[in-house]
């Protein structure tokens, strides 16, 4: 396959998200401008101007009309996808890290980093249909555990919130009461910061990636650990194929080895693993720096990766990919 390279960002990529129909791809990066692209040919559609800091995460509504982004400038912003207009700003006292819209797009969960003595927190806000009626009020605030929460997502039917972060523990909270329902086991769970989290297309299980060079697959209702995938590099991004039993992991270098230049230019790869057998199938090379973001198109026929090098690489699979037998 011939990947399409999109160099819209000046700084490293942080997050990638396809809309439900799979025709738009939203990219977030450390430069302050989230961008939307056409997912078939990589043509840039537009950028959302307004943030003053790195944009860490985004989510798009089911009808692809609303985009919500979280940024280090201590705000989360709501945008009109089509026009690029900023509709609303949720203000916080610390950098916002992660956003996720719940089923029905009426609720959003936003996490904020620990900052200047404030602990990390999980905020639930209501999104109103009419942006002029949008309020800043939180429906629920959960003061979080130590360390950064890198991702928080909704569980089935918006009844639960799943969070994961620096302390390597996955937690499930009740979204009504804010009570902690479940925690991942320290023995079998991750040993280092969890950097990424991705839900399956039906929301029944999710994948976490961690700097401990592994990724783990969990049941979303019981938080039972189902699978573990081992790699040789710290994992920065994970995604699952919606149609095949594949998971994709992307990662980087140890901090300790940053000074020793890796002479293998273009050799950072997105690694494909068989979801059930936990075995590596292969890798797709091409990035010049660690991979920070991965996303699969909902139709399962293409995926994109975003790297430290500022590039988004969009790959449409050949027929060979679908013929892989293991």
């Amino acid at each position: 396959m011939r990947p399409i390279l999109m160099k819209g960002h000046e700084r490293p990529l942080t997050f990638l998200k396809y809309n439900r129909d799979g025709d738009l791809l939203f990219s977030c990066a450390k430069d302050h401008t989230p961008t939307v692209w056409f997912a078939d040919n990589g043509e840039r559609l537009g950028t959302y101007r307004g943030h003053n800091g790195a944009v860490w995460c985004c989510d798009v509504s089911r009808d692809s009309k609303r985009l919500i982004t979280a940024s280090a400038d201590q705000t989360a912003k709501l945008w009109d996808v089509q026009k690029g207009a900023e509709l609303f700003t949720f203000k916080f006292d610390s950098p916002a890290k992660s956003v996720d819209l719940g089923v029905g797009d009426k609720l959003v969960v936003i996490t904020t980093d620990p900052f200047m003595g404030l602990p990390s927190a999980i905020h639930v806000k209501r999104i109103s249909g009419d942006p002029s009626e949008q309020s800043d009020e939180s429906v629920l605030t959960i003061k979080g555990p130590q360390g950064r929460i890198n991702r928080a997502v909704w569980g089935p039917l918006n009844r639960t919130i799943i969070s994961a972060g620096e302390d390597a523990v996955v937690r499930i909270w009740d979204s009504e009461t804010g009570k902690l329902l479940l925690e991942s086991d320290k023995e079998t769970g991750h040993k280092k910061t969890i950097t990424s989290l991705a839900k399956s297309s039906d929301g029944s299980h999710f994948l976490t990636g961690s700097l401990d060079k592994s990724a783990k697959l969990w049941d979303i209702r019981s938080l039972e650990l189902i699978k573990t995938y081992k790699t040789e590099r710290p994992v920065n991004a994970v995604t699952l194929s919606p149609v095949l039993d594949h998971v994709v992991l992307g990662g980087g270098q140890d901090a300790s080895s940053v000074t020793t230049t890796d002479h293998r230019a273009g050799k950072f790869e997105a690694k494909f693993y068989h979801k059930i057998l936990e075995e590596e199938i292969g890798g797709v090379k091409g990035h010049f720096g660690p991979i920070n973001a991965l996303a699969f198109n909902p139709d399962g026929k293409s995926f994109s990766s975003g790297g430290e090098d500022g590039y988004v690489r969009l790959h449409h699979f050949d027929q060979d990919y679908f013929n892989i037998r293991i």
Partner: peptide
Amino acid sequence: FGDAVDEDVGVRLTMTSVEDVFLD
């Protein structure tokens, strides 16, 4: 919209890689 205004299709930002990449 945004920074993409005044841009036409096929501008430098997006290009197809000349090299064939495959699942190793």
